[in-house]
Nucleic acid binder design. Sequence first.
DNA 1: GACAGAATCCGGACCGTGGTCCGCTTCGAT
DNA 2: ATCGAAGCGGACCACGGTCCGGATTCTGTC
Lengths: 229, 229
Amino acid sequence: MLYADFMSAAPPPAPTPREPVEPLEPLELLQLGTDADEPCLRADAARNRARLLEAAARLVAERGAEGITMEEVAAAARVGKGTVFRRFGDRTGLLTALLDHSEKKFQAAFLSGPPPLGPGAPPVERLRAFGLATLRRTAEELELQLAAEPEPGRRFTNAPRRVRRHHVSLLLREAVPGADCDLLAHTLMAQLDPALIHHLIRQCGMPLERLEAAWVDLVDRVTCSASPG
Amino acid sequence: MLYADFMSAAPPPAPTPREPVEPLEPLELLQLGTDADEPCLRADAARNRARLLEAAARLVAERGAEGITMEEVAAAARVGKGTVFRRFGDRTGLLTALLDHSEKKFQAAFLSGPPPLGPGAPPVERLRAFGLATLRRTAEELELQLAAEPEPGRRFTNAPRRVRRHHVSLLLREAVPGADCDLLAHTLMAQLDPALIHHLIRQCGMPLERLEAAWVDLVDRVTCSASPG
DNA sequence: GACAGAATCCGGACCGTGGTCCGCTTCGAT
DNA sequence: ATCGAAGCGGACCACGGTCCGGATTCTGTC
C-alpha cells in the first residue's frame, strides 16, 4: 500500500486566509502536520478520511488524476460528497493529501537526512542534490503533482512548496550572502515546477538528464556571485 | 477606448492540438495574428466579437476579471452564450483577447522598436530592458494577466508567452553561446510570471523596485558564463 | 440587381462538475 | 443516560462548456 499513513491529517481547509500572506519564519513550524499534532479527528471522521484516500488512490491509479470526479471518489469510498470537501477543502486538497506521504519523506530527507541532501554537506552541494532529487521525484509523480497544482492565485501559498522554497532560500543565504536570496530561491524553484517539467518532458520530449544538467548549471551560475548591486 | 482594434481576431480555438507541441521556429510566424492575416469573419460574427470584447472590457473594469461570468458577458453584449465560446474558445481565450492589443504593442516594441528594448543594443542590455518592461506592464495589467493564466497543463503552450520566451532564448544565444539557452530562457521567464509577480507584490508586499533589481541581478548572474556543463 | 445554394454563425437549452448548505446522526466526555 | 459538539450526506447551486435546429450572410450565376 503506497499511501500507508492514512490516519494522518493534512492541514484543515484553513478558514479563508485571503490576500495577505503571513511571513512564516521558523522552519520547524513549516513542516506539514507530523502524525502527532493532528486535530485528532473523531473516530468516524478518521475512518472516512482513510477510506477516501484509499479510494482516491485506487481511482487515480486506474484512470489518472485528471479523469476522476470528486463525486466518484465519494461514491467509491461509500461516503457523501460533502464529506470529501469538508475533509480536504477542495480538489487540490485531496490530490495534495495523496502526495502527503511522499512529501513528508522528502522533507525528512533534506531537513535531517544524510548528506549531500541533508545537513553536513556544503550548501552548494546540498542545492545541487536538492534539485536533482526534486526533479526525479517530480518526474515520477508527474501527473499527480500537475493535477494537484492550485489555481495561479494560490500557487505560491501552497504549503509544501513554501517549505521547499524556504529551504532553498536558507541554503542560498549560506552560499551567496550578498544576494536577494528570497527572490533567487523563487528563480531556482521555478526550474523545478511540475508544470514546467511536464511541459519539457511530455510536450517537448526532453530527457530528464537535460533538466538535471540544466539544474546543476543554473546553481553554478546563480552561485557564482556576480554583481550584488 | 482602450481595446480599440476590436476587429482583430485572436487565433481561433485551435482544433485540440493535444500533448505533442510543435517546435515552432521562425520568429516572424510566432507573432499573434497581425490585423491582416485574419480569418476574415462574417459581418455578423465580427460585429458580435466587437460587442463581446467591449462588454467584457467594461465588466472587467467594473468588477474585476475574477468577478465576471461568461454568461454575464454574453448577456451584456446582447449575444448568446454559445457565441462567446465559439469565438474565444474558453474563458482564458476571452481574457487573453482583452490583452491582445497591449500584447501586440509590446511585441512590436521588443521585435522592431528602438533600443535598448528593440534591436541595436547589445543582447545583455536588451535582456535587462525586456525584463524591466515586462515587469512594469505586468504590474499594470496584473489582475487581468493573472486571470488569463491557463490551467497548469497549458501554461507553457500559451502563444504570447512562447513568443516572449523565444525572444529571450535568442538573446541568450548571443549573450552566452555555450549554455542551454532554451532552458535558461525558461528560468528567466519564470521571474516574470504574472502569478509570481502577483504573489510577491500583492501577497508579500514587495515593492516593484525590488523585483526590478532582482531581474537585473539575475540577468548578470546568468550571463556571467559559468561552467558550460 | 435578384436569386439559390452553401457555408457560416447564432442562441439558448442542456450537461457535468466543483463546491455549498443545513437538518439530521453519531460520537464521546461527563 | 444526557447533551453538546463534531460529523454526515445528498439536495442544491453556479458556472464553464457543448450541441444542434434554425437564421443570416456570402458567393457565384443569370
